[in-house]
Design a protein around this nucleic acid. Structure first.
Lengths: 131, 131
DNA sequence: CTGTATCCAGCAGGATACTG
DNA sequence: CAGTATCCTGCTGGATACAG
């Protein structure tokens, strides 16, 4: 079974010019996908997001939101009220990205057991396999 | 447009028991997807992989291959020859994973320009937006 | 050729304190 | 409420040397 994403055809690589690496590097961090996923249900405020995720620090949430906004995955709307109110919403680009990520997430859910089983059964090779 | 991967429904989260986070953490590192992608074209030896990828260190290639083998994404076959010869091949699990990753990679390719454009147009909010 | 062991620098990211 | 600034630690991953 041959896939069509061999590097020669897709241009994948660790070059900075590689689109896939660029995108993957940005959303492949600890929090980005999580934030996007939480926003898939609808607009949320900063504190709502923080409380929903639970174990993200204020610093990382802020930083992650900036990065996602910067790349166009979500939009930020600040109301000039006191106290301030800021809402974050997925853009069309963000939604479209999530739609592609979803199958991968579902796959992970379905196949996690297999991975765990493989890990359990795994015996590391004895440094330049004998026999 | 509502996606079906809202955390409440998928169970995504940063818990260690979260299947998606577990899988994503393992393949979301610097090299795993790249190695898998290169193997999608067929079986490769250690040095072939290293030369193909180019800028991966021996240490990271070895480490990445171990990790992927451990999780069942690829299989390792060592020939007891001198000098040693070791071949790496995708398993069914690895191929199945790559099939889900591919759409994401293609999306990245197609939408990279939009991301770059968003970055270019981006102006950071002035710390608690005025107006 | 196919690795492992060691050392080390850079950076992601947590805790905390402070501001508009 | 919604952040930014500072400090500090651990891990990722590169370079190098060595081994089967």
């Amino acid at each position: 079974m041959k896939l069509s994403l061999s590097p020669a055809q897709t241009g994948i690589g660790y070059d900075k010019n590689c689109p896939m690496r660029d995108v993957l590097d940005c959303i492949g961090d600890r929090w980005s996908l999580l934030v996007l996923a939480y926003l898939s249900a609808g607009t949320l405020r900063f504190t709502e997001l923080k409380r929903a995720i639970g174990d993200i620090s204020q610093r990382m949430l802020s930083q992650t939101l900036r990065s996602l906004e910067r790349d166009g995955y979500l939009s930020r709307h600040a109301y000039p009220t006191v106290p301030p109110k800021v809402e974050y919403t997925l853009t069309a680009l963000g939604t479209s990205l999530l739609e592609r990520v979803e199958p991968l997430l579902l796959w992970a859910n379905e196949n996690h057991a297999k991975v765990l089983k493989a890990r359990e059964a795994y015996v590391p090779p004895p440094a330049a396999a004998p026999l």
